[in-house]
């Protein structure tokens, strides 16, 4: 195995240090920030509110919309053009798909709940940080949810199965794969599973088992964050 020591000195199954806080944006109905290593995601939830244009309305239940956006100097490379692009649109869609199974908007027909996620600093694993932040923000906004969703990336770097890849590992000069996973906490349903790169079948199974353990750590933080939000000091 060529990859014996991780670039930032972590253990193979160790996540980067995480931090989270709920209720940070006063004007939003619910908000949270979630930080994992050098990746920071701010999520703001607005609504339920009226949905226009009207053809998007669903008379049976409310609609969940996600907006993902990386800030211009958030990455380690060149400036990114701000605003939406093809990548951001796709991630917005997979975020909505990852959150929709738990969010129960049947009490809000014809309305919309908007989730905006901004990433001021990024170092791989942005969609996972975005989903974890969005789940906290939705709960903070008092939106009915059946369960929490936690998300983390796992993968394989030159034969070693690792959790929570940083950018240097994603860009490692060998066979690498990056698998973002989102899972509901109680029912253990996978709501997001994507992959970039190559991985063997055995390693994939190992990686997904590792994801389960890692997601539990993310959940513990989400739970602690939400409990602290309203606990009297």
């Amino acid at each position: 195995m060529a990859y014996t020591k991780r670039v930032d000195g972590r253990k193979f199954d160790e996540l980067r240090p995480m931090e989270a806080k709920a209720g940070i944006i006063p004007n939003a109905d619910g908000s949270a920030y979630f930080k994992i290593g050098k990746t920071t995601a701010y999520a703001a939830v607005y609504g339920p509110r009226e949905l226009y244009p009207r053809f998007l309305q669903n008379p049976k239940k409310g609609v969940l919309r996600c907006h993902y956006s990386m800030m211009p100097f958030s990455g380690s490379g060149e400036r990114i053009r701000p605003g939406s692009n093809r990548r951001a649109q796709e991630i917005s869609m997979v975020m909505a798909n990852a959150l929709n199974p738990v969010v129960d908007l049947s009490a809000f027909p014809n309305a919309v709940v908007d989730v905006f996620v901004e990433l001021p600093q990024t170092d791989a694993g942005t969609r996972c940080a975005a989903i974890s932040a969005a789940a906290i923000a939705l709960a903070d906004a008092g939106i009915p949810m059946k369960d929490m969703v936690c998300s983390v990336a796992v993968g394989q770097v030159d034969g070693a199965v690792v959790a929570d890849l940083c950018y240097d590992e994603e860009a490692y000069d060998a066979i690498v794969s990056d698998i973002p996973v989102a899972m509901t906490h109680n029912s253990k349903e996978i709501t997001l599973l994507q992959m970039d790169g190559e991985i063997s079948k055995d390693d994939l199974i190992k990686a997904l088992e590792l994801a389960k353990v890692s997601l539990e750590q993310v959940y513990q933080l989400q739970q602690k964050t939400l409990r602290e939000r309203f606990s009297s000091e």
């Binding site: 738990v102 709960a139 949810m145 939400l226 409990r227």
Partner: peptide, 8 residues
């Protein structure tokens, strides 16, 4: 008790 979504 303070509970969050999905708590048993």
């Amino acid at each position: 008790d303070i509970v969050i979504p999905g708590d048993i």
